[in-house]
């Protein structure tokens, strides 16, 4: 580092010497030039890519597009920061008026106000005020890197990592065997959620859970001749879209899931069992039954537990559009 400083000093002297040949000694000193943004010389005369984080690569972003008259300059976000700029001496200068790092002393609302002064007019951010993230003091800079060309949260392959910084339960769930293709980078959290605020529950992009799911699963919208009440009400009654161990992202595997709602009359309260353990010709007391049930009969332990469980027969569980005069249609068999 010392060597570097010496080199810089020598170069600076050389520069001064050569400059002296060209300019009269009493000529006013040339003001530092802007590098990326209009008026950024105030900052870039000291700060550059060697800082952590580097500042110049903001030039690669939309914030660095000078031709767009709306783009800000450093002080629009960080404040005039006069004390910081005019600091003399070798000790650490006071921080700029507004900082955005994790340990920033700038209140979150003030940090966000810097962004919202332009972005509040974006249609997707109209509902930021009052949104869960706003109310929980989440800073824009908690998720966004405004200086980077590749903002991690805006790339669907890396977005989830940013969300998982807070949403730990979902991080574990997406790695379960039944999941949406989030770990594979084919879907992102923002396909279903708008973290900037929405009218729907859980910051879902549409007005309701079902309306959000129908954007990809429109075949479930119906209505059907025979509707299934929990399906019509909320897909989240049965599914956990972040991932589950049970197939089809079901919260619990059938028959347990179905038995949580359905009355136990007839075969609905059947105790689950698997073929490997169950002897269908005998009762629990070892008594042979008069009519031994067949192994994959829909009304016995095995038939409601293995394969698709209850859905082995009730396959039209999202609703049946069969007009047939058949009670099995009513019960989603056909």
């Amino acid at each position: 580092m010392k060597k570097m400083r010496r080199l810089l000093a020598v170069l600076a002297c050389l520069g001064s010497f050569c400059a002296g040949a060209a300019y009269a000694a009493d000529e006013p000193k040339e003001a530092p030039k802007d590098i990326v943004l209009t008026g950024d010389a105030k900052c870039t005369s000291c700060h550059d890519e060697a800082d952590a984080p580097g500042v110049l690569h903001i030039g690669k972003t939309k914030h660095g597009t000078r031709a767009d008259g709306r783009t800000p300059t450093c002080t629009d976000c960080h404040g005039d920061s006069e004390k910081h700029v005019s600091h003399k001496g070798s000790d650490k200068p006071p921080k700029p008026d507004r900082t955005f790092d994790k340990q920033s002393a700038t209140p979150v609302a003030e940090r966000n106000a810097a962004c919202l002064s332009c972005h509040q007019t974006d249609p997707k951010r109209h509902l930021w005020a009052g949104s869960t993230h706003e109310r929980r003091d989440v800073a824009c800079s908690s998720c966004h890197d405004t200086h980077a060309a590749d903002d991690k949260v805006r790339d669907k392959r890396t977005q989830a990592e940013v969300c998982f910084a807070c949403h730990k339960e979902q991080r574990a769930q997406v790695n379960r065997p039944s999941h949406h293709p989030i770990p594979e980078g084919k879907m992102s959290c923002s396909d279903c959620h708008n973290p900037h605020g929405t009218t729907g529950p859980k910051l879902l992009v549409k007005d309701s859970t079902n309306a959000t799911c129908y954007t990809c699963h429109a075949e479930k919208r119906g209505p059907f001749v025979h509707n299934h009440a929990p399906v019509t009400e909320d897909c989240g009654n049965c599914h956990n879209p972040h991932g589950t161990v049970a197939d089809a992202m079901l919260k619990t595997r059938p028959p347990f899931l179905c038995q949580q709602c359905h009355d136990p009359a007839n075969h609905l309260g059947t105790i689950p069992g698997v073929a490997a353990n169950t002897d269908l010709s005998r009762t629990v007391n070892g008594r042979a039954t008069g009519s031994p049930a067949v192994q994959n009969n829909g009304l016995n332990s095995v038939g409601v537990t293995q394969g698709r469980g209850c859905l082995n027969c009730h396959t039209e569980i999202h609703g049946s559009n069969s007009p047939a005069n058949a009670s099995k249609a009513l019960r989603f068999w056909r």
Binding site: R5, L8, G15, C18, C46, H47, D51
Partner: peptide, 20 residues
Amino acid sequence: MHNNRVFKRTVLALAVSLAF
């Protein structure tokens, strides 16, 4: 940020640009 850095690449660039 390392706000107390005195010599920066851009400074170096300016110095170099004047010298060479």
